[in-house]
Design a protein around this nucleic acid. Structure first.
Lengths: 136, 136
DNA sequence: TCTAATCCCTCTAGTAGCTATAGCTATAAG
DNA sequence: CTTATAGCTATAGCTACTAGAGGGATTAGA
């Protein structure tokens, strides 16, 4: 049984974040020491590693709840897990596409050789939608 | 002088959002009708369009405050505006890079032909960091 | 065994950029 | 003049944490 500080060190998840995950129902309520401090088992460590790893991949708390639930039922078809993953993947693809559009628009307006704000393409573009090449 | 609803229609910014921008100090406190309703001038419309357009490009509220300030001083060098834009641009580039890493990792683990969760690569990867090819 | 250093506890509030709701009043069209 | 629509304020909620206050618990060394 390890303390929350030890768990934090081993997983790289900050202590308040661990308590937050507990509150959100991602982590089981742990046992307590006589003095009311949290004590975690090997299983708690495994579960938090799973969560950490999922968050690193950008899954939401809600998605992780489902993934954790699935991981506890090895006999279930993995279609569900793939569904969650591919939903997340298309979300990421959309975000990339959107950011790329912003990127090219910003690059375009940053090509401005003016000296003063009066003729600056950045300010002009923001002020006047008609100067914009693409819809965003 | 137009109402907040009319302003909303013309700019595509929702009414609560307009009030929020006012609270955040992006929009000047507008005049009021006898019955205490907001009334906007042509200038208010221009300013909100500027804000809308900046938000569309992903600038933060704080950045927009600075850009608005700059846009009111046409004689100032536009170096400052470019500074804000290029800071934002590199932020976007970083976000794209990070999302691309997530994308390829997710694509990799989604190539799993298993039937059940027991051998599913998605779940396995999340459970065991050692299966991961890249750091994220 | 005592004490000091470190660790942990709960509770509350703050972050960004809105959005939604409740309970009320103002305005405009017929 | 009535009614439908529009607007008002104030407060709370969303995501995924993070920070701080004001306390108690644990542990290592003297």
């Amino acid at each position: 049984m390890i303390s929350i500080g030890e768990l934090s060190k081993r997983t790289g998840v900050k202590i308040p974040t661990i308590r937050y995950y507990e509150q959100m129902g991602l982590l089981d309520v742990p046992e307590r020491s006589e003095g009311n401090q949290r004590r975690y088992s090997r299983d708690g460590l495994r579960r938090l590693s799973f969560i950490r790893h999922s968050r690193d991949l950008g899954f939401s708390i809600e998605d992780i709840k489902e993934l954790l639930e699935l991981s506890q039922h090895p006999e279930r078809p993995c279609r569900d897990a793939h569904g969650i993953a591919s939903r997340h993947l298309s979300d990421i693809r959309e975000r990339i596409a959107k950011l790329k559009r912003l990127q090219s628009e910003l690059q375009r307006i940053s090509n401005c050789e003016a000296d003063s704000v009066a003729e600056c393409a950045v300010i002009e573009t923001l002020a006047d939608h008609a100067l914009c090449e693409t819809e965003h």
